[in-house]
Design a protein around this nucleic acid. Structure first.
Length: 267
DNA sequence: ACTCTTAGGACAACGCTTGC
DNA sequence: GCAAGCGTTGTCCTAAGAGT
């Protein structure tokens, strides 16, 4: 495991591109870590903002340079008026295209913001509950007004009323990022390495591949266990100062794994 | 050095399969 | 039957690398 053995040095020696990628990532979290007090994020408005940030703005010029938030839909409309969509949206923000990524989602998310309230007020909210909430359609009689194919799947009561996605453009990846934000905001507990490992196993193909490449997973080692071992190893190798400089935690650990795969496969 | 080509991407929707 | 899980496909942009 070259990257881990070299630790911080590996960061220094990597190409500018790679560094930039890493360096850019914390930036993405900044607006919400700074601006978002826990109580605010617990409201439907806060939730709306975080959805928009990850589902629409992420990677855009707006998110990078401004990163403000909005108190309601009207404020957003006023702000976005006379600004090109390209300022807010980068269709390839997550590496591959997302045809549905558009500022139209802002309004769509606005209409769905109240779905968040019953969940956030729950006690002992678990990461997996939030994850399922973001991905599936947990709401009874949930609406589905998305339109990838214009008018081709109304609930005509035919063979299957497929549970439609609730939050368009929020996929497994986006969900995990949102959860990361919620953890940083203190709404969700910092997951144990084992718990987060379970998550990786479930959703995070990139990190999974990386661990396989590093030879951490085999027939006798489960993914959560492998990640927990890895976490322990990194904690052992790095000094507190280094960890602090890298802001290492289980979340960024996962993040790094993905980057590792990306870098390695490109070489 | 610049243009063109090509491969592949922290994805999302769809559809089929499997398990109650 | 129905619901959830799993694998496949679609989509188009980006950046690395070859070619001129």
């Amino acid at each position: 495991m070259p990257l881990l053995k070299d630790g911080v040095a590996a960061y220094k020696d990597t190409s500018d591109k790679f560094l930039r990628k890493i360096a850019r990532s914390p930036d993405k979290f900044m607006p919400y870590r700074e601006h978002a007090p826990t109580q605010w994020l617990k409201t439907s408005i806060g939730f709306w903002n975080i959805l928009c940030f990850h589902g629409v703005f992420y990677g855009s010029e707006f998110a990078r340079d401004d990163g403000r938030y909005f108190d309601d839909l009207d404020e957003w409309k006023a702000f976005s008026k006379n600004k090109p969509e390209s300022y807010f949206v980068v269709k390839s923000a997550y590496g591959s295209l997302q045809g549905d990524r558009s500022i139209d989602r802002v309004q769509e998310y606005w209409e769905q913001r109240h779905l968040w309230e019953p969940l956030i007020n729950k006690k002992d909210l678990s990461l997996i509950e939030v994850y399922n909430f973001l991905l599936h359609s947990p709401v009874l009689g949930g609406r589905s007004a998305s339109s990838r194919k214009k008018g081709s799947q109304p609930a005509k009561g035919n063979k299957k009323s497929t549970s439609k996605k609730v939050f368009v453009n929020i996929g497994s990846l986006t969900a995990i990022l949102i959860i990361g934000d919620l953890v940083y905001a203190g709404i969700l507990p910092m997951p144990s390495p084992l718990d987060w490992g379970k998550f990786i196993e479930k959703v995070s193909k990139g990190a999974l591949d990386a661990m396989a490449m590093l030879g951490l997973v085999d027939e006798e080692t489960t993914v959560p266990q492998a990640f927990a071992d890895l976490d322990e190893f990194v904690n052992h190798v790095l000094t507190p100062e280094e960890k602090s400089a890298m802001t290492y935690d289980v979340l960024t650990g996962e993040h790094s794994l993905c980057k590792y795969k990306w870098l390695y496969s490109r070489k």
